[in-house]
Amino acid sequence: MRTKPMRALATMAATITISTTALLAGTAHAAAPADLESLVDAAVTGHLRDDRIPGAAVTVVHGGRTVLAKGYGVADVRTGTPVDAERTGFFLGSLAKLFTAQSAAQLVAEGEIDARADVNDRLREVVVPDTHPGRPVTLDHLLTHTAGFDSDLVGRNRAAAEDVEPLAESLTTRRPPRVRPPGETAAYDNYAYALAGQLVAEVSGQDFPDYVDARVLRPLGMTRSTVAQPHPERIARNLARGYRPDGASGWIEDEGQYGAWSPAGPGAVSTAGDMGRWLVDQLAAGSAANRLMQRVHYRQDARLPGVGYGYEEWRSGGRTG
């Protein structure tokens, strides 16, 4: 299983690519670590030049360890601060859904949540309307994008973390309609992942950022990652700026990376080094939660890739990953 957003994570400021040489194992393209850095150097510098990206960071893991972690370009075009793979934080966008899926999968593996039960059985601050009687929304639906909510992102994000409303409030006041019965169609669903984060919070008795910090980030030594808004100062001061190309040679700083639906991605930050630590743990697949995430839980059609918790199958060259 592989998560679609993990192919390339792009922020307005830069690009983080999280990769693994395990995906190349047994192919003619497998590169020994000695050859890897020059291969990545050529690819990344080319992308920065062609796509006019100020900076990037790359981590490659193989054999249960990080074999390359390197920064390219600058994190701030005004100060010229270079990108550092271990220190420079980037907004994760939808890669943060993996933290949400992992958090929920932990509670399922521990018997705290029944993934096939009506989420209303455990929610107190938020209620899912009974739009389709007898067809309740479950955690399994939320994590496989099959809950049936409409897609509506307009006006959700904020320029400043201080302007973000509480998660439960936004899930109630900004809830999109249920446009199809759950379990019928996979359609990318940010609201569903935000609701999954609320379920984690209510079942665990912890705020969602506190749960993720205690159960996902800290155990792996991911000390420069957070889903909290505002960010802790030690993380905020090393955050890459967000830019869009402006004119022939410049950039304009952009904002809008914060939002109440943080379990779906807004506001979450990590470094390339920290994401390498997370990926090493996922590839080991040692925990029940990790195995649960990487198992196919929904397939629209036998001919199509399946969907796990936070992941989707990836097929190439006759191989499935």
Rank of each mutant, 00 (worst) to 15 (best):
A159L: 08
T66A: 09
P182W: 12
A264T: 07
R87P: 03
E233V: 05
I235Q: 08
D207F: 00
D207A: 12
A14G: 15
A196G: 03
T59D: 07
I53K: 10
S170A: 15
V269G: 05
P82Q: 01
A28N: 14
P209C: 03
R224D: 06
V83N: 13
T81V: 03
D189H: 07
D213K: 10
P133G: 01
A272T: 06
V227W: 11
A104D: 04
A117Q: 14
L220F: 11
R174C: 02
R237S: 07
N290M: 02
E112N: 06
F90S: 10
L107F: 12
T17W: 08
A14Y: 08
G26D: 05
Q257Y: 13
H231A: 15
K97L: 05
A56W: 09
V164I: 11
I252C: 02
G310C: 03
S38W: 06
A194L: 05
G155Q: 05
V127L: 02
A288I: 10
S270D: 04
L68N: 13
D121A: 15
L239F: 02
V127Y: 08
W314V: 02
E312H: 05
A22H: 14
A69D: 07
E233M: 01
P177S: 07
P209I: 02
I53F: 08
R244K: 13
A161K: 09
A109P: 12
T59P: 11
G273S: 08
V40H: 11
T226V: 03
L48R: 09
V74I: 08
F149R: 03
H62T: 01
D41K: 05
V74H: 11
G265E: 07
V216L: 07
E37A: 13
D163T: 06
I18W: 01
V126F: 02
A101G: 13
G73S: 09
G155T: 07
W251A: 01
D254V: 14
G73Q: 12
G310V: 06
R218Y: 00
R244C: 01
D246R: 10
V126N: 03
R178N: 00
D281L: 00
R180M: 06
V58D: 05
G242Y: 09
R156T: 10
L24A: 13
G308V: 06
A75D: 11
D51A: 13
R175T: 05
D76M: 09
V60A: 09
V83E: 11
I53L: 09
K97V: 00
R135V: 01
M293Q: 15
A302Q: 11
T100W: 10
W251G: 01
A34Q: 15
R299M: 00
T88I: 02
M275K: 01
A240Q: 10
L24M: 09
G310R: 06
E313C: 02
S316C: 10
D121P: 02
E312I: 05
L92P: 04
S94E: 14
A268V: 03
Y191R: 02
V280E: 03
D274C: 02
P82L: 00
I16R: 07
H297S: 11
P232Q: 04
L39Y: 08
E169T: 14
W278H: 05
P182N: 04
Q300R: 14
A75P: 09
E110P: 01
N190L: 01
Q294H: 06
G63W: 14
F99E: 03
I252N: 01
H231V: 04
V126E: 00
K4F: 08
R234P: 05
T226P: 09
Q102L: 15
V227I: 12
R299Y: 01
L39M: 13
Q300G: 14
